[in-house]
Design a protein around this nucleic acid. Structure first.
Length: 852
RNA sequence: GGGUCGCUAGCUCAGUUGGCUAGAGCGCCUCGUUUACACCGAGGAGGUCGGGGGUUCGAGCCCCUCGCGACCCACCA
């Protein structure tokens, strides 16, 4: 390959990826001595497209993976694809709708097959997109969440739970979406604060007294009164003490219901009397349990009133029924006013339908013992969290967790392996013959549960399912995922893994925040502000997207997407490309036999030292998941140090073996952050072998620290000189004179080259003249004409003043006995040194002032 | 009701055990056609780190408090 003038990512990325993939570089090595490093990718939706959040996920995970691969670890990055039960089902149901069909036109098994085909038509898409993002994952071990090994593990777990009595079937209130006709776990319900009304309704006492003829209840949902079974008052409430145990007549019905005493009734809220509708309210359900009250279901799974609501209301939607009830109450004289309130209402996170709490038989996981164990392990610090505060948040959540409903009334998912005796509804058995709708056991017929598992029940087991073929990778090294999945996924993985494996699922957790749009708004289709990562890839390249996404981003914090960071990153890729182009030119032009790899000038020791330090620093940063800082460091090394100083100085004297070696090291260090451009370069350079992805993280150069430091001094001198030159009128350059200075003497040509000065003469003390540089330890003069020099007087005076202040500060610090006493000795010594340097400089500047 | 996070340069944000001159990218201002790169080079301006108090020799960082903003959890009828 030849180097074109600018790096055009689109020309290389696909080929480079194919090269890696074909070579088997993504497979874990079977080196038994190496450390094992494993990341399981959060499986993207199999039938969906990747969004920008996936871009960030892959960026972070792939940086870690490539870094560890370069470090020689046995590295296994396991990709996945999620059947995404409910998500996909919603999409498919919409598709059915477009064909004027509904789920009720087919059997569950037919629907399952249809969705299976639907998903598999789309599936390749997502995988291609992962490739475009550069994910160096082991495609041979891609796991689909409906693969046989997933299903069988889920069944094993279900059976274990079942036998341990941690899974039970119960008729409880569940969060039900009447549009999607399925129940949800608590965590899947979106709560929104809404304006509502609190209506007051009179329930007449059956045996009125002179003082009290009726009891007034307050409710936000009048339609549920048709299912009332009691009125609760607080046992300590003086107002109602005497009527506890009496009955009231439930308006609009012929029923009489009791007044019960229960702590649930808050004396200070509303009227202090609460109507109890156990079939449609969680609190009421609990009250009913305590008082052994019946439960009357008046709202059906279709969201319409049932026959139990009475002929007058049966079949109405809850909304219409509410109007009707209010109207009827009004007409019959039971209304006692209303007030506007704000209250929280649960909604379906997908369609926004108000979630109905409905009574339904479902499978529940008794999470208490699981959560307890998880809390212990978390408190013991067995899993490190990044950011650290997420651990606390998770513990807080686990401490208040309620049982987990794992049944879903949708066909797309893993069938629940449970069968019910057709002659005895209480007789349930575990059996994994889910391909049959009915089975016979001991002459009894059992019918399969029609429900499927909550997707998260299987996802919660993901780490040990995906690593089952090579268990030395379990627990995995780090779970990297979105901060929004802390409870939904991370917490459940920990619980399930502790339960089935007796071990944590992963050693570390890294959670990233959301990628917001450029204005800091959440991206959503409806807002039309969605950024497609593949568009960015085709415009700026995959590496630019990766570097741009990780820039200035810290763990767990939502942050806006920044196209300027992407562009800056694209520019960096172009920079390293052009550095390499020049390096190749230099190598081509210098065909004489290769000399030894050694440092022959200060700048060479310096760059080796810088690479050594940066390499160390980046390892430290990546080991602690500080991606943004690591990325910054790469940028700074490549651009501000390697290109601006080393490469520039090499234009004077070329050390070809060192150019080759340092470029290689830099490409290796940069590779995790910008895999495509670095590999493309590696493939293009004439002297490199094999593939960059398989190289070893660089070993430190032997450097002469003194020489490296001397070059640092040169940088300071040259920068200072440049600054003066720029400030001079007409952009003129003048000779740079120095007195008795080995560093200056040895580097005259370099200084001249880098400052574009006409000459860098050595002079004698008596020849002093011109502008003195304010550099401690050196006597350097810009030989500018006297008239120009005169203009510097004011500036010089200002500098002297500033320096004087700095000296005062240092002196004050040293005069403080507590500082000298308590601060570390090195620090105090450093302060002394600084003071001495500054005082020396001040003296020289004062001398100069007299010269002008 | 419980909990979490944020407030640092014009903008978007970094800043790990407190250490002395607080950083980056973009933007802004000067200068520059040096054949690696204008997706460039050189230089520069710009910050009382939300307010107040405290701990400390020393605080952007720790503690208290106030203000503003964002988010999560939760059964308040």
């Amino acid at each position: 390959m030849k180097f074109s003038k600018a790096y055009e990512p689109n020309e290389y990325e696909t080929d480079v990826y194919a090269l890696w993939e074909k070579s088997g570089a993504f497979r874990p090595k079977s080196n038994n001595k190496a450390k094992n490093y494993c990341i399981v990718m959060p499986p993207p939706n199999a039938n969906g497209n990747l969004h920008i959040g996936h871009g960030l996920t892959i960026a972070l995970e792939d940086i870690l993976i490539r870094y560890h691969r370069l470090k020689g670890d046995n590295t296994w990055y396991i990709p996945g694809a999620d059947h995404a039960g409910f998500e996909t089902w919603v999409v498919y149901e919409r598709y059915l709708e477009s064909k004027h069909k509904t789920r009720f036109d087919y059997s569950r098994d037919e629907l399952y097959d249809q969705v299976w085909n639907f998903v598999h038509e789309q599936r390749g898409n997502m995988e291609l997109q992962l490739r475009a993002l550069g994910a160096s994952c082991d495609w041979d071990s891609l796991t689909f969440t409906l693969d046989p090994k997933v299903v069988s593990t889920v069944y094993d777990t279900f059976e274990k739970f079942y036998n341990d009595k941690l899974i039970y079937r119960g008729k409880k209130l569940v969060n039900f979406c009447t549009k999607h006709q399925t129940a949800f776990a608590d965590i899947e319900v979106t709560h929104k604060e809404e304006k509502g009304k609190l209506w007051r309704i009179a329930y007449p006492l059956v045996n009125p007294t002179d003082d009290l003829k009726e009891i007034i209840v307050a409710t936000t949902r009048p339609e549920t009164m048709l299912g009332d079974v009691a009125v609760a008052v607080n046992p300590n409430d003086e107002r109602y003490k005497n009527i506890i145990g009496q009955n009231v007549k439930l308006p609009l019905t012929n029923r009489e219901i009791p007044i019960v005493a229960d702590e649930h009734a808050d004396m200070s809220y509303g009227t202090g009397a609460v109507k109890i509708t156990p079939a449609h309210d969680q609190n009421d359900y609990e009250v009913a349990q305590r008082h052994d009250l019946p439960m009357i279901t008046v709202i059906g799974f279709d969201g319409r009133m049932t026959d139990a609501a009475g002929d007058h209301y049966s079949g109405l939607t809850t909304e219409d029924c509410r109007k009707q009830v209010l109207k009827d109450l009004e007409e019959q004289g039971y209304r006692r006013g209303e007030e506007n309130i704000l209250h929280d209402v649960g909604h379906c996170y997908k369609c926004d339908t108000v979630i109905e709490p409905l009574l339904r038989e479902q499978w529940f996981v008794d999470v208490k013992p699981l959560a307890q164990k998880a809390i212990e392990v978390l408190k013991a610090g067995k899993i490190k969290f990044h950011p650290a505060n997420k651990k606390k948040v998770l513990i807080n959540y686990l401490e208040n967790l309620r049982d987990w409903n794992i049944s879903r009334q949708i066909p797309w998912g893993i069938p629940i392996p449970a069968f019910q005796n057709v002659d005895d509804p209480s007789d349930w058995i575990y059996d994994n013959r889910v391909d049959q709708t009915e089975i016979e056991i001991n002459g009894k017929t059992y019918r399969r549960d029609e429900d499927t598992f909550d997707t998260w029940f299987s996802s919660a087991q993901w780490p040990y399912i995906t690593t089952s073929e090579d268990q030395k990778f379990f627990p995995t090294s780090v779970m990297e995922t979105g901060a929004d999945l802390l409870f939904q996924w991370v917490g459940r993985m920990i619980m399930l893994s502790l339960y089935t494996k007796g071990d944590v699922p992963f050693k570390d957790v890294y959670m990233h925040g959301m990628v917001l749009d450029e204005k800091g708004q959440k991206m959503s289709k409806s807002k039309g502000n969605v950024i497609n990562p593949l568009d960015i890839v085709s415009q700026y390249g995959s590496d630019a997207l990766r570097l741009g996404l990780i820039a200035s981003r810290s763990a767990g914090v939502n942050q806006a997407f920044s196209s300027s960071k992407v562009i800056a990153s694209r520019n960096l890729c172009n920079k390293i490309w052009n550095i390499s182009r020049l390096a190749q030119q230099i190598v081509d032009e210098n065909t004489s036999p290769a000399t030894k790899l050694e440092c022959r000038s200060l700048g060479e020791d310096w760059i080796c030292d810088e690479i050594n330090q940066t390499s160390k620093e980046i390892q430290k940063l990546l080991d602690s998941y500080r991606f943004a800082e690591a990325g910054d460091l790469v940028y700074d090394l490549v651009w501000n140090r390697y290109a601006d100083w080393f490469i520039e100085s090499q234009k004077l004297w070329k050390n070809v073996p060192l150019i080759q070696s340092t470029l290689e090291q830099i490409l290796i260090i940069m590779h995790p952050f910008a895999p495509f451009v670095t590999e493309t370069i590696w493939q293009s350079l004439s002297w490199t072998d094999g593939m960059l992805i398989n190289q070893q993280w660089p070993k430190a150069y032997k450097v002469d620290k003194t020489k490296a430091d001397q070059f640092r001094e040169l940088i300071a001198i040259i920068t200072n000189i440049r600054s003066h030159f720029q400030a001079l009128p007409g952009n003129d350059r003048y000779p740079i004179a120095f007195i008795d200075d080995q560093l200056m003497y040895d580097n005259q040509l370099l200084i001249q080259h880098l400052t574009k000065a006409p000459s860098v003469p050595q002079i004698k003390i008596e020849e002093i003249g011109g502008l003195r540089l304010a550099i401690p330890g050196h006597n350097i003069y810009l030989q500018i004409p006297a008239d120009i020099h005169a203009k510097y007087k004011a500036q010089l005076e200002e500098n002297i003043l500033k320096l004087g202040n700095e000296i005062n500060t240092l002196e004050a610090r040293l005069r403080n006995p507590k500082y000298v006493e308590r601060a570390p000795k090195e620090l105090v010594e450093e302060t002394h040194n600084q003071l001495a340097t500054k005082e020396d400089l001040l003296a020289k500047m004062k001398d100069e002032l007299e010269l002008i």
